[in-house]
């Protein structure tokens, strides 16, 4: 017999709280360490006539981190929803993101303005989600193929998709918009209008997802299915329909994420989504596997840690390694918190 003091009912929210706490900590450290840097900068400005154009590195990275975190959240919320409703860790989700960028690129090449291209990409992403679920995933569920086997199927799909995308797009980098970004200065940080619009789109889209899950009938059904599919089905919810809709949503959100990512990075290629796949997994796991809102918080943590860490790291190319390390450490320090509810034995 083992014995322990329990955190009680609050324990379920632990992942969220720890993620929130880490975000705040990172933000606080950043701000605190930024103050002296800014002060010294002010001091040097006296001598430096062009001082007005200097930005604060730390704050700038924090802003970049938040931007990237929002993009990541948008891209990964579908990953989280699919995991929550079907138990599948979808390794092909990165290609879903790339697909969005590729579809937008195709539309832009065909002469469409960027806005129309983005809409097209979102529709195409949704259609791809629908198609996948119809042709593949619903069939696997019908055949009662375990989530673990389905995960390997998703690996196969990822391998196939990334290479087909390479054949389609070629190996070179592509650009969705050729305009040169102007950057506006706001005190110690600067930001481009394209990025500002991206952030706004992210916030609106994430808000819409939140509204959908909390306030709409279908959203509540989705949450019921992720809590307990058998129970949900017993109460008259059509589980397969909910999952189909989750796939469509997941595909369109990932596509939108892909388009915004391509605008944010100013470039895209066939492996753009694959490159952020592990960051998305890290975000979703940090936020709590299967909690749709966890993806948002986890993504912000991942984005901020990745960008802010470049200020301290010996070489900036280690920033994603830091994220991977952080993920492993979190599981090490507080695995129970991330587990959500413990499964029952016997």
């Amino acid at each position: 017999m083992r014995n322990a003091d329990h955190a009680g009912p609050k324990a379920r929210h632990f992942p969220l709280r720890i993620a929130l706490l880490s975000t705040l900590t990172v933000a606080a450290i950043t701000v605190i360490s930024a103050v002296p840097a800014q002060a010294s900068q002010l001091a040097t400005e006296v001598a430096d006539t062009a001082g007005g154009t200097e930005t604060n590195l730390l704050l700038q990275n924090l802003l970049n981190g938040i931007t990237f975190g929002l993009l990541l959240a948008l891209a990964s919320v579908g990953l989280s929803l699919i995991y929550a409703t079907t138990g599948l860790s979808n390794f092909a989700h990165g290609e879903q993101v790339t697909f969005g960028a590729a579809a937008a690129f195709a539309a832009v090449t065909a002469g469409a303005p960027i806005l129309l291209a983005a809409v097209f990409a979102v529709l195409a992403g949704g259609a791809s989600g629908w198609l996948q679920d119809t042709v593949l995933w619903s069939q696997l569920r019908k055949r009662r193929i375990a989530p673990m086997q389905q995960m390997i199927v998703s690996i196969g799909l990822a391998l196939a998709a990334v290479n087909l995308l390479q054949i389609w797009m070629g190996a070179q980098r592509v650009r969705l918009s050729t305009s040169i970004e102007v950057r506006y200065e706001f005190g110690p940080v600067s930001i481009g209008p394209q990025t500002m619009i991206s952030m706004a789109v992210c916030i609106v889209a994430l808000g819409a997802v939140g509204f959908f899950l909390q306030r709409t009938r279908l959203g509540r059904a989705t949450r019921a299915v992720s809590d307990n599919p058998a129970l949900a089905s017993a109460t008259g919810i059509s589980v397969n329909r909910v999952i189909r809709i989750v796939w469509i949503m997941s595909g369109s959100l990932a596509a939108l994420g892909g388009v915004l990512l391509a605008l944010y990075e100013n470039t895209s290629d066939f492996s753009a989504g694959a490159r952020i796949l592990l960051l998305m997994f890290a975000a979703v796991t940090l936020g709590g596997l299967g909690h749709p809102f966890g993806a948002l918080v986890g993504s912000l943590v991942v984005g901020i840690v990745a960008e802010v860490s470049t200020v301290f790291l010996p070489t900036p190319d280690l920033k994603y390694a830091i994220v991977m390390g952080m993920l492993i450490l979190t599981l090490l320090v507080r695995p129970q918190g991330l587990l959500g509810r413990k499964e029952r034995v016997g």
Binding site: S89, M148, L289, L313, T315, D317, A321, I328, P335, E343
Partner: peptide
């Protein structure tokens, strides 16, 4: 922990090894 945690940690750790290995550091 449950099996999928090993999957995520192993894939993340392998990626970490590769990123550190290829880094200029």
């Amino acid at each position: 922990l449950r099996g999928d945690y090993l999957a995520i940690v192993t894939i993340a750790a392998a990626e970490m090894v590769r990123l550190i290995g290829r880094s200029q550091w």
